[in-house]
Design a protein around this nucleic acid. Structure first.
Lengths: 152, 152
DNA sequence: CCCATCCTTCAGAAATTCCTGAAAACTCGT
DNA sequence: ACGAGTTTTCAGGAATTTCTGAAGGATGGG
């Protein structure tokens, strides 16, 4: 079997495990191994053997998440799609929202705590996510620093 | 409405967004606001108005994830459950596996890359997750350091 | 040894999600 | 303004998931 195709399927499975639809992962896999100019919806449909309806929603989803961008191509009818620079940093940053959610939840819980309950577990939760929210941005900063260095 | 109950439901929704079944989140919410000795399955069934079958699987799930522990109680028929210390660090650590998965995927993609394709996107992906995997443990170390300080 | 109590497993119902084919809507060059 | 090519929307079908009720199994006190 084609190693490239194998990669596409694996990307589908991995990204599915992360909570996105399978086609979205396969599209991403296909775009990651596409020509530098990206790929059209038709090419993707061909390679993935998927319906264009599914591709349409998957591409919109990926675009709204900031992972993929649409590149209109003068002289060509079909738009091209490609992986956005910094896509993964963007994705990770959205994971940050989950941390915020959990932190908010912990605070909410502390507020709603009934008499005689042990605040210990909730306090630990609140402190843990507070720490994480504090350190999270520094990782991304480090990443951007690395990016600049690589350019210079 | 009871603020405590509200918190339980909210926990259900938030944890559902994170990919666990809703009851699991509600159980966690209930345990976070329970007496220090934890709660029995019967008490949880009462509070959550959920079937004991669902609780059984949810509790097993949570236990295997390391978020909850089972505390047999001498002199009492029913086992008690409570949130484990360091539960959230444990959960986060499992998120680490996802990063590893994505890093592996990137490496796999680079290996399978066809001729003439642009390795740029995959290389960026590989480097990004490599950085993240490197920095991730230091956050947890910082956490454990904080824990020790709080004790001393 | 027996019985009450608790826990788990099983099959099935309900809801949600994902993808497809067909039809409608839009775009661009002429 | 027209028509080919492209994209989106929509309804339906398939598969997966989550929860419940009921039956079966384990465990500890008397």
């Amino acid at each position: 079997m084609n190693g490239e195709q194998q990669f596409v399927e694996r990307a589908g499975l991995v990204l599915e495990m992360l909570g996105m639809p399978r086609v979205a992962g396969r599209v991403l896999g296909a775009l990651l191994t596409a020509s530098p100019r990206g790929a059209t919806a038709a090419e993707l449909a061909e390679r993935l053997q998927a319906s264009r309806a599914g591709l349409s929603t998957a591409l919109r989803h990926l675009t709204m998440m900031g992972l993929v961008e649409r590149v209109p191509n003068p002289g060509e009818r079909a738009d091209r799609y490609r992986v956005r620079p910094n896509a993964w940093a963007t994705l990770t940053e959205q994971g940050n929202r989950k941390l915020q959610l959990l932190h908010d939840l912990a605070q909410d819980g502390l507020r709603a705590l009934p008499e005689g309950a042990d605040p210990g577990a909730l306090r630990e939760m609140e402190q843990f996510y507070a720490l994480w929210l504090r350190l999270f941005p520094s990782v991304l900063e480090e990443w951007h620093r690395m990016q600049k260095e690589a350019l210079g």
